[in-house]
Design a protein around this nucleic acid. Structure first.
Lengths: 334, 334
DNA sequence: TCCGCTTTCTGCAACGATGTACTCAGACGA
DNA sequence: TCGTCTGAGTACATCGTTGCAGAAAGCGGA
């Protein structure tokens, strides 16, 4: 059996409650008593039982993170940073994969997963604002990445529109005139696809260029999605001199397919992505993309969530944080 | 406040313990009573408090996973699969990053992390068998990936030696005569680097070729490690016609650097990796590598660990599982 | 001297579940 | 008819903490 507070109390010759007081930094304890307790703890190698503490106090010092799939590089890198930042503040992160399915997102929002954690970092993909508001429960929650722009929720996000606009402007400045977009459909206006597409349209408009719906190709946001989307474009004989993949996976898949088909990147077609995952830097050619400020997203969202959990952040309305981006101009679209 | 078993008991007009009995599928309950309880549960929307259950029963239905860094694609993909498989058996996975530092591995092995979980999936990178045996505690533990070949531990691993041998043999069959190895040093004989290097040496020996230590370049197992290692090789004027990166990240980094320096892959230098991460398929050129059977690793290790936790697996000695691999011949080393 | 306040420490209940031991009918066999 | 056994359900203690209330001792002020 493990050492309990009772054993420590006996060894130190004090009451159980005094041990608890020492551990919780209660103010009025004589230094000598405190030392006795600390010595006993060290000698017995006592470690607090987190389950019992959690049951009694109602806090687990665990944060939940809901995302679609940990094997997506962007999410993996984000999760890694979130865990590191949380750990520095004494919290752990419990990850739940939703596979982008509504039922899973719902159960992560309500069920036992919620119970185990003090607060939630949520990347909704299928659930809308109303559904979330209705099922969210009472514990703190910070929305991530997706722009569910609703004053009821805390939100930490990247500048989707601005970044996409800047990246498109860069392509235009490089004399690309027919920029295909992969990963959205024409009518998208919300969510990451919609916002990034909006940035693209704004850049076109600013340059006085027409928007051509035939250059917008929907695709699953994965490498294979990017590959097949660009395949369709090529097969259809579309005329384009650049591809903007709405995330890096799409762009990398597209670039792969282009090269297989003998299209030179960037001479014939420039390629740009979004996210600046580590892989982008080492692709061949290296991928021009946008770094959405992942470190800052991780820090701000963890800080906000923990402040909510601990009652430090008291804003009534949802707090909205937008993080600065940086263009990463590389060989695929110089 | 959340609904408790007491509320359910009151609503159903039975004792608290009867509710518990229904939930735990106790045998002797009249169907009518059971139905009353189930109705009350449904009506009140009761959900068991996992923390309380865990305190009382000593089981949390959580498994720990210790790895160096979730942002490493191989680990991210593995973690994702492990979570999916565990979830199908009603378990969650709590991930801890060790950053490949000894202190972190130790604390994951002993500390509060261990307390929170019923069993551990452990990828040791710095700790040796003795240290692990000494600090392991009493809960079940399954070693992953690394070949700490010790009968005291359960282990699920890939065929490192065989796979590396087969891959090297493939390169030799393609008439590559000077195969550089990135990610190991000459004296390595254990761990992933050592085992894969052993496979390489065996393949050379089988082909009657000499082993040239100057072709073995140590490197951090990351993309940038692969890039700088191959940079060193080129700078030193070494003579080589193939690169075997001991994992895909190394190989992809190396391939990137080769192409930047104007070396044609595969015409001038063939490149091969190890792991078959998703990215390998979409690299340019696509990467020849070994698929180490990740799905099977995930299934077998979770099954073994849960069987230990639930007492189904009773082998006294450590159970050792070796999973089959498959070569993936692609464009970088046809 | 007595009161009230602060400092230091203690005991008990409680968090919400499960395990053990028990009660109480009713059935069954001798 | 009696004792025993089995089914069905209950009461209470328990897991290891923390919150709340209170007790004892010391101190200053009137």
């Amino acid at each position: 059996m493990a050492v309990t507070m009772n054993d420590v109390a006996r060894a130190a010759g004090v009451s159980l409650k005094t041990v608890s007081n020492v551990l919780n930094d209660y103010e009025f304890i004589r230094p000598a008593t405190k030392q006795k307790v600390l010595d006993a703890i060290a000698e017995l190698g006592y470690e607090a039982n987190l389950t019992a503490r959690s049951l009694r106090s109602g806090k687990s010092r665990m944060l939940g993170l809901v995302l679609s799939d940990l094997s997506v590089p962007y999410y993996a890198e984000l999760a890694s940073r979130l865990m590191t930042v949380a750990s520095a503040r004494g919290y752990r992160v419990l990850v739940e994969q939703s596979a982008a399915e509504e039922a899973n997102e719902l159960s992560a929002l309500q069920g036992t997963f919620r119970q185990l954690t003090d607060g939630l970092l949520f990347t909704p993909l299928t659930l809308g604002a109303e559904a979330i508001a209705h099922h969210r429960g009472s514990k703190p929650m910070v929305m991530l990445g997706e722009h569910i722009d609703d004053p009821r929720f805390d939100l930490v996000t990247m500048k989707n529109v601005g970044a996409a606009r800047a990246l498109t402007a860069h392509l235009l400045a490089g004399d690309r005139r027919r920029i295909a977009v992969i990963g959205a459909s024409e009518e998208d206006s919300t969510g990451s696809p919609g916002l990034r597409l909006t940035g693209y349209r704004e850049a076109l408009a600013a340059a006085g260029m027409d928007f051509d719906p035939s250059l917008i190709v929907p695709a699953e946001w994965r490498r294979d999605g990017g590959a097949s989307a660009v395949g369709e474009l090529l097969d259809s004989g579309a005329d384009f001199d650049a591809v903007f993949g709405l995330n890096d996976a799409l762009a990398l898949g597209a670039m792969h397919e282009l090269q297989i088909r003998g299209v030179n990147v960037p001479a014939d077609v420039a390629v740009a992505g979004f996210d600046d995952i580590d892989e982008a830097r080492f692709a061949s050619p290296s991928l021009t993309t946008v770094a959405p400020g992942m470190d800052e997203i991780a820090e701000r969202s963890i800080a906000l969530l923990i402040d909510r959990v601990e009652g430090t952040e008291t804003a009534e309305q949802g707090v909205h944080v937008e993080v600065e981006f940086e263009l990463r101009i590389r060989a695929s679209a110089p």
